[in-house]
């Protein structure tokens, strides 16, 4: 009897592997788990956008739970996300910082913010991806929740909207505030 079962073992192994790999196929390979979670924000220092007083550096992210958003005027998903970020700022939910990533020229970002409104407390100009690389970004929009000590606690890939804000991001922010 046991000998008979031994012949079934390869089939069983195959079955388990088949299930595992099928599940693997459902995963989105562009969602790379961030190694920066629970790590301090890497050092970066970005210049001000044209017409803005101040740039944005990692040193600005101290003392408050905040949101860092990577965007660009070329990014359609960012356009879809923008009204919600405006709402966060308008309702004083938390400070929102922006990294304006890879603009064609120095006027595109400021013009876009003028047209769509500016939800950012500070914005850094990032033509050479230095800010984006510091955060290990692969696309836009991506957002990070940073705690009071300047430690990255959560990475959100894609558009933030009412639904995922309520379900995922806001609870994290509230928990971090209590610490």
């Amino acid at each position: 009897m046991i000998k008979r079962l031994a012949f079934l073992a390869p089939i069983l192994v195959l079955g388990i592997l088949a299930i595992w790999f099928t599940l693997g196929l459902q995963r989105d390979p562009s969602r790379i788990p961030s190694v920066l979670i629970n790590q301090p924000v890497p050092e970066f220092s970005l210049a001000a956008l044209k017409g803005f007083d101040r740039g944005f550096s990692n040193k600005d992210l101290m003392g408050k739970v905040s949101l860092v958003n990577i965007f660009g005027s070329w990014c359609y998903a960012c356009l879809a996300e923008h009204p919600f970020l405006m709402q966060l700022t308008k309702n004083k939910v938390l400070p929102v910082y922006g990294i304006d990533w890879r603009e064609q020229d120095r006027t595109s970002g400021p013009r876009w913010l003028k047209r769509q409104g500016n939800p950012y407390l500070l914005v850094g100009d990032d033509p050479k991806s230095r800010g984006a690389i510091a955060f290990g970004v692969s696309g836009a929009p991506e957002s990070f929740i940073v705690d009071k000590a300047g430690i990255i606690r959560y990475k959100h890939i894609g558009v933030i909207n009412q639904a995922n804000w309520k379900a995922t991001l806001l609870p994290i922010v509230q928990k971090l505030r209590q610490q």
Binding site: I32, S34, V35, P42, K128, S129, I133, F135, G136
Partner: peptide, 28 residues
């Protein structure tokens, strides 16, 4: 941009491993 960064860090005097570590610490 990553290629340019690699070159900048090499010019700044980083070792090969240092450059790789820098990028690995951000992207895993």
């Amino acid at each position: 941009d990553l290629r340019v960064l690699v070159r900048e860090r090499l010019v700044a005097g980083d070792s090969d491993q240092g450059v790789v570590d820098y990028i690995q610490s951000r992207y895993g």
